[in-house]
Write a protein that binds this DNA or RNA. Structure first.
Lengths: 219, 219
DNA sequence: TAGATTGTTAATCGATTAACAATC
DNA sequence: TAGATTGTTAATCGATTAACAATC
């Protein structure tokens, strides 16, 4: 790798990877950056630039081979390797995720669910192994779990995150309605907030209605 | 408003608004940009700059009044007005959202749920009014619904979005595992994708492990 | 070959950071 | 007043877009 990879490029490349996976299933063999642009919504310049951060993936003058490009991106970003994940907090949202089939076929295997309420562990219908929350660190370490989804109440976020990190987790998707701002070396966080998404949509709508917002391609 | 508002600033201001709301509940009266910076994780320069896009909110030399600043941002971004929303697709994920209490106290009222399966409409336990999906456009218009959450299967996304837009919706949060790339004038879209979040975390972890990623403050 | 398309360099554009004058 | 802090201008930094040489 010659250069470092900007975060926006990394995110676009992840999306491109999944698009190529779909195209592969549709038996599409080769595709140009212009055609990819049309399907994914960012410019063909942008796509070629992003791809080139990972080194040459095609041959100048030829179109991309869909499978080869997918494999190339997947290998460079580590998306080709299957990873283990867990769900922490088995309320309605957590329970709706623990049996979500798409994880497995996308290379993410949910191997554990946690809740502090023993009752929930006994009543929840799932094939995933369930544990009380005080075992998080131990189980994460033993099963080599790399990723976690947080669907706990706001006041549990801090404590649960510490346990996950001490168990060796590498990434957390936080769905709890509180920003997880704490940082640990080598641990990445994505905060997803429903209210926040509504806020952003409201603000954009409010601004655009007034023609005051400088709209760009990303939304 | 003198200038247009960059999208990153808009998003940060939304988060700042919710932080200030919390601080208000903790009886905090005044706060400096440096203190806000510590709590929210972006630089104090950045915070003052973002705020100044909305016009003066405090007085030079004095700290911000938490309540006044919250009201100011809320008014400018339209976050002070309560808005109506709906949930489309009442599978496990949709069902987990329809009774989520935090929406109401944050100014978003869920006034309708939709599903194409009549059975689901009859068996789901909720106080929210439920309708079959073919009534989306009519109900959205009649109830003046501005926002929608999409928790339908991938192949229903396109059709359902058209109905929502024709009913007059202004924003869509798409949780379906497919990118909603179509654009309509004055309608804003936020795509949330669990697999995508895992992909981003995996890629970041993969890169940072190699010290190849240029890390910046945003994660 | 001629037309098409990639990979990459250069130019533009925009956002963040730094610095500081104005203010209390 | 002196110290602190905002609002804003200027400087830096980084990402996107444009252009094109290299290649098939």
């Amino acid at each position: 790798l010659k250069n470092s990879l900007p975060e926006p490029s990394l995110i676009r490349l992840c999306k491109l990877y999944r698009l190529l996976q779909e195209l592969e299933q549709e038996q599409i063999r080769d595709i140009s950056s212009a055609e990819l642009s049309e399907k994914i919504g960012f410019g063909s310049h942008n796509i070629r630039k992003d791809i080139s951060f990972l080194g040459e993936a095609g041959h100048a003058g030829l179109r991309y081979n869909a499978t080869a490009l997918k494999e190339h991106i997947g290998f460079q970003l580590g998306l080709n390797k299957s990873k283990k994940a867990c769900i922490v907090g088995l309320g309605r949202l957590g329970a709706s995720m623990i049996n979500y089939e798409k994880f497995k076929i996308s290379g993410y295997e949910i191997v554990a669910g946690f809740d502090s309420n023993i009752n929930k562990l006994e009543t929840l219908h799932t094939n995933v192994e369930l544990f009380p929350s005080h075992q998080i660190a131990e189980v994460v370490k033993r099963k080599a779990i790399e990723l976690a989804v947080l669907t706990v109440p706001p006041d549990a976020v801090h404590d649960v995150s510490e346990k996950l990190v001490s168990g060796g987790v590498r990434g957390i998707v936080n769905f709890a309605p509180v920003l997880l701002t704490q940082k640990w070396p080598g641990v990445f966080i994505r905060n997803i907030d429903m209210i926040g998404e509504f806020d952003i949509l409201s603000a954009m709508s409010n601004y655009s209605g007034d023609r005051r917002l400088h709209l760009n391609g990303s939304f």
